[in-house]
Design a protein around this nucleic acid. Structure first.
Lengths: 210, 210
DNA sequence: TGAATTTGTGATCATCTAGTCCAAAAATCC
DNA sequence: GGATTTTTGGACTAGATGATCACAAATTCA
């Protein structure tokens, strides 16, 4: 996917824009907005100070761009996890597993930029973006549940909204647990069990010979 | 509960220590460690700079003290919510409601110091404290489940560890949702529904005439 | 080749930061 | 009342921070 063969006019850039953005993501992710100094970004992104400001704007603007790119990637992954598998249970489990995988990626920092870092950035635009993103995630899960109703996998009175909120809460909880250092393997198992919890209340734990 | 009538030797303090600590809690809570300047603390706590350093130590030490005090309060509240009600369902619902109430306290900041703020403090001691606190919370819920087994409220093969982790994940999720601005009333309802989810899988949503 | 255009580099600035120092103030003890 | 002890308040320091500026370097276009 080479951008465009039309070369711009002046001196060519010494860095790849999207790669630099990925580096910036890692830096913000690991050091949490306030903890990041411009010099950290310059050193980590491989971009000169002037280039950084002229290409990405100031720190706040750069963070917003990082956040948007991150959200788009993560949202795409979540949607794929939700709508690829034919079985509803696999979709929900995949959604939760995806949250765990993002939060425990090897070589990267634990947690999630949107769940752990961005909420603390004291900026109305960031705040609004997070609200919208959360609403979007909720809508995705709700839609998947409705598809499940259409397919007859769950009854038509399945509490779509409530269960979707619970799925999101569980995903957030798993993410925070990952940030604290829980091992990936255990979290993936928790993700499966969370999916079962939300979808399979078929009396598995009903009292028996107590 | 007046501390002690034996007056200390020198000039009396011009502030109440625990009250100042509460103010500090609010400040860290609302501005997130890195966002807090010493001058913010001085202004907000009503304590002079020198007094602040001599009484509470440096910023990091003060934060640790704030964190410990906060954790103790919150832990006590959680334990009370868990072990006061006779019925297990009320205990779990109370535990989750407590998380919501803390995260949506009027006049205070949204969220939770331990869930939303402290995990981002880049300090090994803080990190370890949070791990221990999380383990402690988990142990509380597990114990309550075991009590429930003893009392015959749930079967003896109830998956205590799994369900306790799910309760904690749901609590974390609710807290983060609160931080994003969800209304308290809705969150309290979610807390109730989460308790039902974890405890009442008695086929309520099992397929029927689909 | 030379003008135009864009990027890279280092110096620089004003501001903010955590933390220290010192003398004055206010209390107790003898 | 004087010595002692503790708190207070403001001045101060050294360093970090976000951002800008001026100028050199590298490329395209004519």
């Amino acid at each position: 996917m080479i951008t465009n063969s039309i070369r711009p006019r002046g001196r060519p850039r010494n860095f790849d824009e999207s790669e630099a953005l990925n580096k910036a993501t890692q830096i913000f992710w690991s050091k949490s907005y306030d903890g990041v100094a411009i010099d950290d970004l310059i050193a980590g992104m491989g971009v000169g100070r002037q280039s950084l400001y002229s290409v990405f704007g100031d720190k706040r603007t750069l963070f917003l761009r990082v956040l948007r790119a991150y959200a788009e990637r993560k949202g795409a992954g979540a949607a794929k996890a939700l709508f690829s598998p034919p079985a509803l249970r696999d979709s929900i489990a995949g959604f939760l597993r995806h949250a765990v995988e993002v939060a425990t990626e090897e070589g990267s920092v634990r947690g999630c930029l949107m769940v752990c870092v961005a909420p603390l950035v004291d900026d109305p635009e960031v705040r609004q973006f997070l609200k919208d993103a959360a609403a979007g995630g909720l809508a995705l899960v709700e839609r998947r549940f409705r598809d499940g109703i259409s397919a007859g996998e769950i009854p038509s009175d399945f509490p779509v909204g409530t269960r979707a909120r619970q799925v999101l809460d569980l995903a957030r909880g798993l993410t925070m647990h990952a940030q604290l250092g829980a091992p990936r393997k255990a979290l993936l198992k928790d993700a499966e069990e969370a999916a079962d919890l939300v979808l399979l209340p078929r009396g598995a734990n009903a009292p028996r010979e107590v």
